[in-house]
Amino acid sequence: MSLANVRVVLVRPHYAGNLGSAARVMRNFGLADLVLVAPFARPTDLEARRLATHGLPVLDAARIVPDLGDALADCSLTLATSSLTAGVARRGMIGPAAEMMPKLLGAAAAGPVGLVFGPEPHGLSNDEIGRCNGLVHIPVAPEFPSLNLAQAVAVCCYELRKAYSAAATVANPADTHAPKVASHAEQERMFEHLREAFTAVGFLFGGRADSLMHAVRQFLGRANPTPQDVKLMHGLARQLLFAAGKTPHRGEPET
C-alpha cells in the first residue's frame, strides 16, 4: 500500500505561508502530490518558500489548475474537509479524520484519490463539497471550530500516516483483484446524464431537485462504481430520456 496516490488539493489558498507549511507537512508524512486550484498565493512567493523548508520539492512540483474538476478528474475517491457538518450538502459519507483516512488509503491502492481543503476565509462551498464523495471533519472545541489551513492539512496527513503504518504491519497483502473504480471525470459525466434523465421524467423537480440529486450522488458514490457500473447508469439514463421523448444524451460511453 502506497501514499503516492494520495493527492492534497488546496482550493483558492490565500496565504503563501500556508502553502509552504502544507508542503512541509506533506513531506513529513510521506506525501508528494500537491494541486492548487485557482490559488491567490503562489508557490514562488518568498513566504511560501521560507516556511516549506525541506518541503520545497513538494512545493516546486505543485500543479496549478483552474477548477476543482481538473484537480480530481482521475481520482476514484474524493474527500472534502469542513468544520461544518450541518446541511444537505454535508450529508452522506462523513466522519472524523481518524475514521475517514483509512477509507481514503484503501481506495488509493487502486489509483489516485483526493483530499480537498478550502480557502482560509470561508472554506469550501456547498457545491464544492457536493462534488466530492465524502466529508472529513476534525473534532474541535465548538466555541472555536475553524482550524488554520496548514494545521488541518497536518491533522489529516498525520491520520493518513497512522493508517498507512497500521496497514504496513498487517501480514495479508492488499487485494490486487479489487475491481477498478471509475474516475471522478467518468462519474461526473454519469451524474450529469442521470440528472438530465431524472429531470425529463419528473423525478427532479422544483426546490427539491438539488437535494434529491445530492442524495443520488451520495448513494452511488458510496458504492464505488466501476467503469461498467457507470456504463449501466448511462444506459438507464438513455432509456429514461427515450421514454420521455427527449433527444439522447451524447456524452456517455459506448455500451
Rank of each mutant, 00 (worst) to 15 (best):
L68N: 02
A89I: 05
L46S: 15
G95S: 09
C75I: 01
E120M: 01
L68W: 01
S125N: 07
P57E: 13
I94H: 09
V155Y: 05
L124E: 03
T78F: 00
E159Q: 14
I129P: 00
M101V: 03
R131P: 02
R90F: 10
V153G: 02
D127S: 11
A107P: 00
P139R: 05
T78G: 00
A80W: 01
D67S: 06
E120K: 00
P139D: 13
L135W: 01
L59D: 06
V153N: 05
P121C: 07
V65T: 13
P142E: 13
H54Q: 13
P139W: 07
G114R: 00
P121M: 04
R131N: 12
A41G: 12
I129T: 08
P119F: 09
Y164S: 13
L149E: 11
V65G: 12
L147W: 10
D60V: 11
G130A: 06
C156L: 09
C132W: 00
A171Y: 10
L147G: 03
E99Q: 05
M100V: 07
A80S: 14
L115W: 02
P39L: 03
A73P: 01
A98D: 15
P121S: 05
E99K: 01
A163K: 03
P102N: 09
G123N: 05
G55R: 08
K162G: 08
A152Y: 05
H54W: 10
A86N: 14
N148T: 07
A163Y: 03
L68T: 02
G92V: 10
A108P: 01
P145K: 04
A168P: 02
F117L: 08
A97Y: 04
E159H: 11
M100N: 03
A150N: 11
T85K: 05
T85H: 06
D127P: 01
P145R: 07
